[in-house]
């Protein structure tokens, strides 16, 4: 990797932007594709450009045969994001475990004594109301939203915002009874059954989790379950 390329990759990572690094694996010559612009020493023809565009769209690194050369396209993307509504005990564990897996975590709770830096080291904290906080996060398909406040005033606006986004995972704490009551209220706001089916609730995989930490594990496991494609013929138990 030539001098300067690493600095660019680090700066793109810090500003949370995607980049493709395209390398001729015989010579080591490379080029960075940043917002559609090529910066580097490797020439790109139309066929290679099409492969780069496809790799970026799928967020999938791959080796391609380009004439008589072999070229590796590496796609580097910013971290997945998790917004947690409610700064209670489960949220503390969820924030820590998700951060360990590599998520950018934002904890949203207007109650400043709960959503404090002491209780949530490393997480971004927001004391706005959830609908405002989520609007400024601009949720996308690389985002997960989990409502854990137990308070419909906080959880429902958050779930509503999540359902209007492309978030890949939407979870809401509460018993089956609570889920049913929430479903009825949100239907009254115009959400359809299909919309509301996107909410995972009771939240988390059914692994018999009891403690706040165990519930956090079950939620993270469910996020992974939703995110990752399954191999055909492999059944989960």
């Amino acid at each position: 990797m030539r001098a300067g390329q690493l600095d660019k990759l680090i700066s793109l990572r810090d500003s949370k932007r995607s980049v493709a690094r395209v390398t001729d694996i015989a010579t080591g010559d490379d080029v960075l594709i940043i917002d559609g612009k090529a910066e580097g020493a490797l020439a790109i023809d139309a066929k290679l450009q099409a492969a780069i565009d496809d790799a970026l769209a799928r967020e999938e690194s791959r080796l391609i045969e380009d004439g008589n050369r072999r070229v590796f396209i590496q796609v580097l993307t910013p971290p997945l994001r998790l917004a947690i509504i409610g700064a209670g005990h489960i949220s503390q564990f969820l924030s820590t475990i998700a951060a360990e897996i590599g998520y950018d975590v934002t904890v949203i709770d207007p109650r400043t004594t709960y959503a404090s830096a002491t209780r949530f080291p490393g997480a971004t904290l927001s004391h706005e109301w959830p609908d405002e906080a989520l609007a400024s996060l601009a949720l996308d398909r690389r985002s997960a939203v989990v409502a854990l406040s137990h308070d419909p005033k906080l959880d429902e606006p958050a779930l509503a915002a999540a359902l209007k986004s492309d978030a890949f995972y939407v979870g809401g704490l509460g018993s089956r009874k609570t889920q049913a009551q929430r479903r009825e209220r949100m239907k009254g706001q115009g959400f359809t059954d299909a919309d509301l089916d996107r909410i995972h609730g009771p939240v988390g995989l059914d692994i018999g989790a009891l403690s706040p930490a165990e519930i956090a594990v079950s939620i993270v496991a469910q996020m992974i379950d939703v995110l990752r494609p399954k191999k055909k013929g492999v059944k989960s138990a």
């Binding site: 990572r13 799928r58 690194s61």
Partner: peptide, 21 residues
Amino acid sequence: MADIIPGADDDVLGTVHRWKG
């Protein structure tokens, strides 16, 4: 939604940057 979204990993490039420094 694309079927593959890369997850997190050790911060290899960040470590390389620090080592080079």
